[in-house]
């Protein structure tokens, strides 16, 4: 891919975000995660609940509450700055201008007591220093951009007057108000109906082309990943287990977990009588099994897997897998 030759916009190196609980347990929510996002690309992060995908993304702009969270190590290079080292003032400048977020719940992420217009204008006056009138105009423009009908009227409405899909558009408008270089979308369509989801995904793809924003797209839904992502990162128990471009992930997955995830979904075209299943449950992050965290649920488990944690290795160009036996065959190292 051509993106590979360019400098990455966002580079995360060995990020560790741990939570220290009252009883002394350490929950390694994000454990040694590294990845890059290039300009104009969509990186999909997929995994089940509790795998650390949201915490990884919240760590990027230091949105994880500390304590109980703690950034234990690593680097987040965004636009040439290490986000874990910058001052609070600088961080505030980066948020919204360089990196901004859309969350899952459009019902709860808007303030119910302020008008839609005010909430978007606030972003513009604070981050771009616009006057009130300018901000108002810009807010209408932003709503127009996300295809909200009658933006002049909607700016004067309250969130409760809008449907879920409309609220999510408002969130997108707000997130894009300052032309961020990277947009983090954390399960943006999970709470929406299929037909509304199709509208929102279509809108995001159009805006991406129009504004050349990079998107970090978090979801548990592989079919949404198939629709949106250029490259895919699969997470399990706080670690990246596989990273490759979207075609490779769907056509030649090598990590047993990715394989299982893809096989366990009833496709619109499957006709067999039973689904393939990954046995067992997602492990408790404060009591991870020894060795490979996926070991107890893995069909290819061998002695080696129970002892050491495998490294993330590039098994073929741009295809990284954390497994001793990718594809079920023993690896040399």
């Amino acid at each position: 891919m051509t993106e590979m030759n360019r400098e990455p916009l966002l580079q995360v190196k060995n990020l560790k975000t741990y939570f220290h609980s009252m009883n002394g347990n350490i929950v390694k929510a994000v454990d040694d995660v590294s990845f890059e996002v290039y300009e104009g690309e969509t990186l999909g992060i997929v995994g089940e609940s509790g795998c650390g995908k949201s915490i990884t993304c919240m760590s990027l702009a230091q949105l994880v509450e500390c304590p109980p969270g703690r950034y234990e190590g690593g680097e987040i290079l965004l636009d040439g700055k290490d986000m874990l080292k910058v001052s609070d003032a600088e961080l505030r400048k980066m948020r919204g201008n360089v990196i901004s977020y859309i969350f899952q719940e459009p019902m709860t992420s808007l303030n119910p007591v302020f008008k839609i217009g005010f909430q978007i204008e606030e972003v513009l006056t604070l981050h771009r220093g616009l006057s009130k009138e300018e901000a108002h105009k810009e807010a209408i423009h932003a709503l127009d951009l996300v295809r909200i009908p009658n933006p002049e009227r909607i700016v004067n409405e309250y969130p409760f007057e809008l449907s879920g899909g409309m609220r999510q558009r408002v969130m997108i408008a707000m997130a894009l108000a300052c032309n961020p270089k990277i947009l983090v979308a954390d399960e943006p369509t999970t709470a929406l109906d299929v037909t509304i989801q199709a509208q929102v995904l279509d809108l995001m793809n159009d805006l991406k082309k129009q504004l050349n924003t990079s998107i970090l797209f978090i979801t548990h839904d592989l079919s949404v990943i198939a629709e949106m992502a250029d490259r895919v990162m699969v997470m399990y128990a706080g670690k990246v287990v596989e990273l490759a471009d979207v075609m490779t992930i769907f056509e030649n997955p090598l990590h047993p977990y990715t394989k299982g995830l893809i096989a366990s979904r009833p496709d619109m075209n499957t006709s067999s009588n039973r689904l393939t299943v990954i046995p067992g449950n997602v492990p408790d992050l404060s009591a991870l099994p020894e060795g490979c965290s996926f070991g107890p649920r893995c069909g290819f488990f061998c002695e080696k897997c129970g002892k050491g944690v495998p490294e993330l290795v590039e098994v073929e160009p741009n295809h990284w897998v954390r497994c001793y036996r990718p594809g079920g065959e023993d690896r040399d190292n």
């Binding site: 989801q197 199709a198 619109m268």
Partner: peptide
């Protein structure tokens, strides 16, 4: 038809399907 075409396909090759029907408006 709209419901079936709105459901994201599991195959990355099928994206950018121009036959997709995107319903306007809300319920």
């Amino acid at each position: 038809e709209a419901l079936l075409s709105a459901a994201p396909s599991f195959d990355p090759r099928k994206r950018n399907n121009s036959n997709r029907i995107i319903l306007q408006g809300d319920l």
